[in-house]
């Protein structure tokens, strides 16, 4: 564990808590993509199957259980409890266009051709693009509430901090996972446009609204 990794994890944790607070306090899931949350649930479920096969640390186990628990709770809020506020018309990204190529790629490019390994690789690839339905929804409605912007900023920062963690680990420990690094770079690049809007607008007290 290094400072980049810890900050990355805390940023990820903060993102999830910000999203839950937004939904709980406003009693609304407006502006939130249910499809992105379903993809994240798929990511966590696939990646954390190793909860049953290997123990790493109390910290590791607690974080995994928390991530899985909260993402399913988020889905429950979107599709059941606050269903009336869910904007399904604008959440129209075709997720099969992500799932199918990502699944194919996980089969073709992995560290080892074994079931758990392919599922892990699938989760890494899928995570890198799982935010696309959310970004698509914002581009469609042309705006994002400030609290949603904070959520996205924290969520995007998490993988960017992981990139710093991997650079550090490469020099400090000789650690290098090409699949995670490439997917992490792709994931971070997808947020760049949003990061720009966040810094130029949200940090100056304005909300994100795109020209029609």
């Amino acid at each position: 564990m290094n400072i980049f990794r810890l900050c990355g994890d805390m940023s990820h944790l903060a993102a999830i808590i910000i999203l839950l607070l937004k939904m709980w306090k406003t009693r609304s899931v407006a502006g939130i993509s249910g499809k992105s949350q379903i993809l994240f649930a798929t990511v966590f479920t696939a990646r954390y199957l190793d909860l049953f096969t290997s123990f790493i640390s109390i910290y590791n186990t607690c974080m995994k259980v928390f991530f899985i628990g909260t993402v399913y709770f988020t889905i429950y809020l979107i599709y059941m409890k606050f269903k009336a506020t869910y904007d399904s018309n604008h959440d129209s990204f075709r997720v099969e266009f992500l799932i199918v190529p990502v699944g194919g790629l996980a089969f073709l490019v992995n560290h080892e051709f074994a079931p758990l390994e392919i599922i892990w690789t699938f989760s890494i690839y899928l995570e890198s693009v799982a935010i696309l339905p959310q970004l698509f929804m914002i581009s469609k409605t042309g705006e994002a509430e400030t609290i949603t912007s904070h959520y996205l900023f924290a969520l995007g920062s998490y993988r960017a901090l992981y990139l710093c963690n991997w650079i550090y680990r490469y020099y400090a420990e000789g650690f290098f996972d090409l699949i995670a690094v490439v997917a992490g770079v792709v994931q971070t690049i997808l947020y760049c446009d949003f990061f720009y809007l966040y810094i130029t607008k949200v940090m100056k007290g304005k909300k994100i609204s795109l020209p029609a």
Partner: peptide, 10 residues
């Protein structure tokens, strides 16, 4: 072996 998998990460 150079490649080590990030299984201790989240």
């Amino acid at each position: 072996k150079k490649a080590k998998k990030g299984k201790d990460e989240l």
